[in-house]
Nucleic acid binder design. Sequence first.
DNA 1: ATGTCC
Length: 481
Amino acid sequence: MLERLGKAEWLVPATGEMRVPGRIFADCGTIEQLKADIEEGKEWNALRQVCEVACLPGIVTASLALPDVHPGYGFPIGGVAAFDVDSGVAVVGGAGFDINCGVRTLRTPLTEESVLDYKEKLAEQLFRDIPAGLGSEGKLRLSVEEIDQVLIKGARFVVEQGYGVEEDLEYIEEGGQLTGADPRTVSAVAKQRQFRQVGTLGSGNHYLEVQVVEKVFDEKAAGIYGLRKGQVVISIHTGSRALGHQIGQDYLKEMVKATKKYNLPVRTRELACAPIRSNEGERYLAAVACGGNCAFANRQVITHLVRSSFARVCGIPPTSVCTVYDIGHNNIKLERHCVDGEERTLLVHRKGATRAFGPGREESPVSYRSVGHPMLVGGTMGTASYIMRGTEVGMKKAFGSGVHGAGRALSRRKAAKRYWGENVRSSLKDRGIILRAHSLRGIAEEAPGAYKDIEQVVKAATDAGINHPVVRLRPLIVIKG
DNA sequence: ATGTCC
């Protein structure tokens, strides 16, 4: 049922109700795992999800999966699907519940050697300064009007409030402000949940890491991104917290009704959707933009807190900590793409998939345009992270998309059974990685062994030609919820 | 991912 197209590229021919084929970018090991899951009759199966997405109305070219693919709600995580704006649908499961979950990476003027004596102190300061954990609350208190401003203006609003500098905005996807956001499409309950959560990390796989640039693969792109070997950087992985989750819940209910109302050929609740050009579809996309803006604002406020922590412990000016880039991996966006030689506007769903626009696209910051914008690929707390970039091949074959991280190999439940938080912490300590976390069970669930090997994920994306590595980052300090 | 159930 799978045809091999290249070293790390596979085709799932369209059969039955599939309108387009599936296309999977992955190594042999991942493909064997996907096949084994099917043969064992596992319901919770990413390959089946790739095929079900391929059945959705208006899908263009193919239902895609990336090397870090694993099963998700409706769409696989590591899944990409683009839809024709007139005949296609907007799918809640295509962005997931943590809308615009993503990563921001900051660069510092520090080297690993220069922070060795400060490591414990820095970890303690960051742990104290960055609110994290389930239900954690930030220091900001926003009025109803201000919450609407966050939803409309995203990172720009909090920068105007003094959390960061104008230059940060240049280095956030879409300038940190997604267009089309309309707070009237977001429920009062969702806004209420946002009230205390701007500038908080959350829990689960979210983290803040202090990292060192361990290896440079692409000197030109690294130089353009302001990165060099031995440099200390900080990566922030978080999303839209409870607000995004509530938007997902609210619209899933609405889309279940819309699927019936518009008589859409969708059998599973997990792929509930509405025509893009319907009231439900348009309102959902306006709400997704609000959630996305909330996530950008969240990472912006955390950036401000990180600058203060570093200034206090390391004595560097806050302004010397600069945003390399900020990019989401759970998004739905209207984008221009070339399909069979024709330029078209498509609604691209990326779920656990990073946008990866190659050289020349005007969406990238001017100074990055010659090589394309950075893709921030998060590893586990014990393994490397990568900064990659998009390629021409990725633009043609994957709607300018790429991997987002290691991808889970074990469920949270299985990981919590197999690992114990204290053991994970001490084995990290043995390797010079300081872990400060709010939940011991959380550490076990996030144990490096619960994830795929990031090296294999990066290699497969590179072999497929859709992404290209720029630098590898090694963790020094990890802050978890 | 998520005040892990309205």
